[in-house]
Amino acid sequence: MIEATGGSIDIEESFKAVEIDSTSIQSNQQVILDTTEIPKILLPLISRNGQPEVLIFNVEDIKRLRDKYGILGILIGTLAQYPQQNFFLSVPLKLFIWEVIWLVESGYAQLIDQVNYRLDKAKELQSKGKLQNNNVIVMTKKDPNSKSASQLESREANFIVTPNTDSHKYSKDYRTICADDYEVSLKDYLKSYIESTSLSQNQVRSYYQNFKYLKKQGFFINPGLKFGGDLVLYPGDPLRFHSYSIVKFNMVDLQDFVVGGRLATSVKKNIVIIGDVDESEEDGSTEEVNDEFIQSLAKEPKKMSFSIEWSGFG
């Protein structure tokens, strides 16, 4: 986050709680986003019958999400090189609901009905006759990348593999087909998400607006249950930086204050609580996930926030 001016960065100054005005806030995104040239990232939507899940298998997409948009996701797959540990995991990268909404709502990505797309494509492939699975490769003991092509050719294939994703899918052809026939709207995604969880439509809106409010300030964001919060915030990519804050969406009790403040301080963080600037703004009338609701997600968040930490005395 935040311009490379060096020295300390005065977040207190830049993000005065009550005076949030979207136009006056500089985008603190590390990279200025430019959507004109790049095609949208296709977000594979999985498990449409249960809770819908967006899982990314394409490493190029993972790269773009992280480097360009500061979207982290959570790796949930087994790392085949080291399959007996849980510290370093691999694809798929699971995006959580706020990341999904943010990417789609900002126009960086679109949702794809993955299972139907892939089944239809497989059918088509099979109808064309001979398949080329290409899943047998040459594997050398040391680093395979260091071998020259000729050296590799001279050896017999000895390894059978499962790739992360379908390597042909980024053909122009594929993109058009997906966009046309397999796109899932944000509305449908949210509808099934809300149906399969205990979140209400108002909560989804309010929490998403919180996420957006934080994203605008350039933070990197992860889920926060490990620390008793809804989110954790990082001042930069968590690969390099310790997290700053634990975010609580609903702070309702002083007990939470004591617990949260104490916990945060013991792990060198603080607690951030967020609320609406004007509560009447909450037009909680619609119970349905309709177009109006989807439009309301795109509104500028009007939020105020406070940071809590132990005082060090008492």
């Binding site: 207190e12 005065k16 934080l214 301080t265 603080n270 926030s305 406070f306 940071s307 809590i308």
Partner: peptide, 17 residues
């Protein structure tokens, strides 16, 4: 018992303890 907690206006970085 009285316990004291700071409330900062807005999002600030935590004190480095």
């Amino acid at each position: 018992t009285v316990v004291y907690y700071f409330i900062h206006d807005g999002i600030v970085k935590p004190r480095q303890n």
